[in-house]
């Protein structure tokens, strides 16, 4: 009987351990910053949002980032409206997202700087594009800082830039992304 008891207690402990471990392997980040930069000889336009959310699952280093398009702020509010209405069609495609995995494998318990790339699907304006995006990761006391700079080509995502506009918009938009992820506490 005592042997059975020990066995069951051990089993319970093991299962609790598994559940604890799998929770600890989840990192979440809220309010990550995404900035857009469009540069032409006539006009530079910047926009920024602090409303991106990210989730990372560790065993596979899966990374999932989402941002509401309507959260981007522009200096000119009318430009912001046109960004949503004419270009991004944010009522139809309310969020942009990236879903992929980080390479190479990292020891997430060790503090340090890592140069990584994220391989996955970038979905903007409802168009999914397979991308490998370079980025940097810094780990300090269990908090992960993540940052990346990459380009988004409007035409690839079927974002049309009509000729009859006074504002000049670049065909390739520079995107920068930065924020921190912390272990999910249950």
């Amino acid at each position: 009987m005592t042997l059975v008891k020990i066995k069951t207690i051990a089993l319970l402990g093991l299962m609790l351990g598994i559940s604890y471990l799998s929770y600890a392997q989840t990192y979440i980040g809220k309010g990550l910053k995404v900035s857009l930069f469009s540069s032409t000889p006539i006009e530079d336009i910047r926009a920024s949002s602090n409303a991106a959310n990210a989730v990372m699952l560790l065993p596979k280093q899966e990374l999932n980032i989402q941002i509401p398009i309507k959260s981007f702020e522009f200096e000119k509010k009318l430009m912001q409206e046109h960004f949503n209405e004419n270009y991004m069609e944010s009522d139809k495609y309310p969020i942009a997202k990236f879903k992929g995995s980080i390479e190479p494998l990292i020891d997430w318990t060790k503090d340090g700087d890592y140069t990584v790339s994220a391989k996955g699907i970038l979905s903007v304006h409802g168009v999914d594009v397979a991308r490998t995006i370079a980025g940097k990761i810094n780990i300090k006391n269990g908090v992960i800082s993540i940052s990346s700079n990459f380009d988004v080509t409007c035409a690839v995502h079927h974002i049309e830039i009509p000729k009859l506009v006074f504002t000049k918009i670049a065909e390739i938009i520079k995107v920068s992304f930065q924020g921190t992820l912390s272990p999910l506490k249950k």
Binding site: T26, I28, S71, E81
Partner: peptide, 21 residues
């Protein structure tokens, strides 16, 4: 638990619900 369902629990798009223009 996968990344999608976890992201949905964070759910920040609710704030950006205005029908504009």
């Amino acid at each position: 638990q996968n990344t999608d369902s976890l992201l949905n629990t964070l759910n920040s798009s609710m704030k950006f619900n205005k029908v504009e223009a």
